[in-house]
Design a protein around this nucleic acid. Structure first.
Length: 295
DNA sequence: GAGGCGTGGAT
DNA sequence: TATCCAAGCCT
């Protein structure tokens, strides 16, 4: 349905945010780094970290060669630090198996750690101009409203990809731009709370509008608790290690969570299992590679 | 496939 | 203050 794309493309050309990873000289590597950082993380927090990473590690092989401890410190408080670990592993694979160039096809991207359905398609479309549907939470919300007339997207389904592909024009470059425009619309106009329908370029085509903006009648989302969870404890422990200049003793980590020693021990173990923390022979703890002798 | 996994701003 | 929410992935 070119109808939607015909509206979205001029709107996007005039209203797209000037994000640094959208600059014309950004490589596939730059796009990939941005996509990983943006998983579940707002643009404003990613922006400065992405700039720092691109200046410091401009190619996959640069990141692959960095000490993992420094990678985790540079990741800072973006959250979900396993993303940084997987990104470094992906960088090593790209350097070793793809000539230090991020692959341009979805299947090769999917084979890399930390890259799933969304990210593989986002890189193919945004870095390489491929015509492939890119479905994230924004796009699912836009499609739910504009196409299906529902207030929310509900759970992901197998129909998300074909539903979205049906909105893409046949021209490859236009299709890639449409994918970006769909995401931009969901991020800036067709937002979860308080959609700005008065500013929407497709409001007169929107099935949700035409239905009178009915309320969501599907299952409510499951709110995830935070206080006292293992996620909070892991975050505290890792924050201590990021802030240290080298290995720390057990007492420093104990101070980070005194509420429940058993929980603290369990979380420390899980961080070690995940490869985010190492225990040294002398019993101290450190970020990965921190004890390696400088060469 | 449901649940785990960080962080912090907005409401 | 508590809940919601943000360009998901993995098991």
């Amino acid at each position: 349905m070119p109808a939607l794309a015909d509206r979205l493309l001029p709107w996007f050309a005039a209203n797209a945010r000037d994000l640094p990873w959208r600059a014309p000289d950004v490589t596939g590597w730059g796009v990939l780094v941005s996509e990983i950082m943006l998983q579940q993380t707002p643009v404003v927090r990613v922006d400065p970290i992405w700039r720092e990473w691109m200046a410091r590690w401009p190619r996959p092989s640069d990141l692959a060669a960095a000490p993992t401890a420094e990678v985790l410190r540079a990741w800072g408080k973006l959250g979900y630090p396993r993303r940084a670990l997987r990104l470094q592993a992906a960088a090593a694979a790209i350097a070793a198996e793809h000539g230090d160039v991020v692959p341009d096809d979805v299947d090769a991207l999917l084979a890399l750690p930390g890259i799933g359905t969304y990210t593989a398609r986002a890189v193919a479309a945004f870095a390489y101009g491929r015509r492939c549907p890119v479905v994230d939470t924004n796009v699912r919300r836009v499609v739910a409203r504009a196409v299906h007339g529902r207030a929310e997207a509900g759970d992901a389904s197998a129909r998300d990809l074909p539903d979205t592909e049906a909105l893409l024009p046949s021209d490859e470059a236009d299709a890639a731009r449409t994918s970006a425009a769909l995401m931009e619309l969901g991020a800036c106009v067709c937002v979860a709370r308080g959609p700005r329908c008065a500013d929407c370029p497709v409001s007169d085509l929107c099935a949700w509008q035409q239905a009178g903006r009915p309320a969501w009648d599907g299952p409510p989302k499951k709110g995830q608790r935070w206080a006292g969870t293992d996620r909070q404890v892991r975050g505290r422990l890792l924050d201590v290690l990021r802030g240290a200049t080298g290995p720390v003793d057990a007492a420093a980590l104990e101070a980070a969570w005194r509420t429940d020693p058993a929980q603290r021990a369990r979380c420390l173990d899980s961080l070690i299992v995940d490869g985010l923390v190492e225990q040294l022979a002398d019993g101290r703890f450190a970020l990965p590679g921190e004890s390696d002798a400088p060469s």
